[in-house]
């Protein structure tokens, strides 16, 4: 708190001074935000999407466990996106469907349909930081990216593979996040995420997510075929393998409500 106040104390005059002498000068915070907006903007207009997601969970011994999930998402212009996940594997949870309405700045709405109970249950929880289906992905790692979920700070430019990347720090706004910050590598040519480093509550590196095998859909939307999360602490890792991306399949709000959950399987 103190530190922030101090920063602002000298930052403000500095900015005023800088903007007086130069026509255009951007702070690291502004640049970070601008990159985030640009990223969000460049992907706008995908409307709706379906895909198959396979999770391969590995422990430090290399033992594997596999989850298969069908994903459906609906783009929302003024709010967070809506998404529906239908679990196909393991067989014990086949037909279980998970509906969530992402809300920037507040708890998401979440419902789960349990076929064995034949009931829809609303989950009232602020927790988004726990592991998703026992994997190294937290639920918050998988929800849609919204500008308002973070504050930003541009760090530097850096080459990432054959591309040139912006490296931006993102600070979660949600106080129940499991992270203090994420460091994100975004390429400058197509605004694709290449890598995210996750720092836990005590600000030490916990996990690294890497994206691979991007493909372009509808001439505009880049999606990775593979996302790999490595936990540096537990040495466990999880691969997300995406197949069968489809866009503009004609999904609507009617496909994302409590009743649609029961029909999902």
């Amino acid at each position: 708190m103190n530190l922030q106040a101090k920063t602002i104390n000298w930052l403000l005059p500095a900015i005023l001074l800088a903007s007086a002498s130069f026509s255009y000068a951007e702070t690291a915070e502004e640049k970070g935000l601008a990159i985030a907006k640009q990223t969000k903007q460049s992907d706008i207009g995908w409307t709706d999407m379906t895909a198959q997601m396979q999770m391969v969970l590995r422990n430090s011994e290399g033992q594997e466990s596999i989850r298969d999930i069908r994903m459906q998402s609906l783009e929302k212009k003024d709010d967070g996106d809506k998404s529906l996940s239908i679990f196909d594997r393991p067989l014990d949870v086949k037909g279980t469907a998970f509906l969530s309405f992402s809300h920037p700045g507040e708890a998401d709405d979440q419902w789960l349909y349990l076929p064995a109970l034949k009931r829809v249950k609303r989950i009232a929880s602020r927790n988004k930081s726990g592991p998703f289906m026992g994997s190294e992905f937290a639920y918050e790692d998988l929800t849609s990216f919204e500008i308002e979920k973070y504050t930003y700070k541009y760090l530097r430019d850096e080459s990432c593979g054959t591309e040139q990347c912006y490296v931006v720090e993102q600070y979660p706004v949600d106080e129940y996040s499991g992270y203090t910050r994420r460091v994100v590598w975004i390429d400058q040519s197509e605004n694709r995420l290449h890598k995210i480093d996750f720092y836990d509550r005590k600000n030490s590196l916990l996990k690294t997510l890497t994206y691979a095998a991007y493909q372009q859909y509808l001439g505009k939307h880049w999606r990775p075929d593979m996302m790999k999360m490595d936990n540096h602490l537990t040495k466990k890792n999880t691969d997300l393998i995406w197949t069968d991306y489809q866009f503009n399949t004609g999904l609507s709000d009617a496909d994302f409500n409590r009743n649609s959950l029961k029909r999902a399987h």
Partner: peptide, 29 residues
């Protein structure tokens, strides 16, 4: 069996960071 599995799925989805069941369940349950 399905009911137990789905309860656990539901429960695990709603736990916060660090309080998961990985300390008492192995990766493929």
């Amino acid at each position: 069996r399905e009911l137990a599995a789905q309860y656990l799925l539901l429960y695990e989805m709603s736990l916060p960071y660090g309080l998961d069941l990985n300390n008492q369940l192995n990766v493929d349950k």
